[in-house]
């Protein structure tokens, strides 16, 4: 694209000149509009516009809502509120599960730390004539056995 002469018009590049004029106009328009939306009057206008839309839609929404509620009840279908309520309960369950998973992870970490820790020094058994038996694995204590011990 050729350079425009200082007076802004290049007869050899009419499209370039047109684009320059267009962009200059758009810039001016953009500056004006940006300044306008940043005024108190515009803020009030946009607020009133929203308020009007909400005021007009409220009774319609209410009527549609009531109609749908009764229609869905008649055809044995859950209403939107019931589905939303169910979804909210599922979210609560998910939160509980997330907490439980975290607690489980903490427990597993603690158990692994205990397993990795060096065993406590035990008292040496009294010498006997019998051959030394290999060390037996610690018995797994079931919940029931532990309960019995505690009793």
């Amino acid at each position: 694209m050729s350079q425009n002469p200082p007076d802004g018009f290049d007869p050899n590049d009419p499209l370039g000149t047109w684009r320059s004029i267009r962009d200059a106009n758009l810039d001016a328009w953009a500056r004006g509009m940006t300044a306008m939306v940043n005024t108190e009057s515009f803020a009030k206008a946009i607020g009133m516009q929203l308020d009007t839309i909400l005021a007009a839609s409220a009774p319609i929404q209410k009527a549609v809502h009531q109609y749908m509620e009764s229609y869905l009840a008649q055809v044995n279908m859950p209403s939107r509120n019931e589905v939303v309520s169910l979804a909210a309960r599922l979210t609560n369950i998910e939160l509980r599960l997330d907490d439980m998973q975290s607690q489980l992870d903490e427990l597993l970490t603690a158990v692994r730390a205990i397993q990795l820790a060096p065993p406590p020094v035990a008292e040496l058994p009294a010498p006997t004539d019998a051959p030394a038996a290999p060390p037996a694995a610690a018995p797994r204590r079931t919940r029931k056995a532990r309960t019995a011990d505690q009793q």
């Binding site: 939306v37 940043n38 005024t39 108190e40 515009f42 803020a43 009030k44 946009i46 607020g47 009133m48 929203l50 308020d51 909400l54 839609s57 409220a58 929404q61």
Partner: peptide, 21 residues
């Protein structure tokens, strides 16, 4: 500072009704 500040601070912006609907 900025249009958002102006728009949201006007008493005409009925946020409660917007969220309720």
């Amino acid at each position: 500072a900025g249009p958002f500040n102006r728009w949201l601070n006007t008493e005409y912006y009925n946020v409660d009704e917007l969220v309720r609907q």
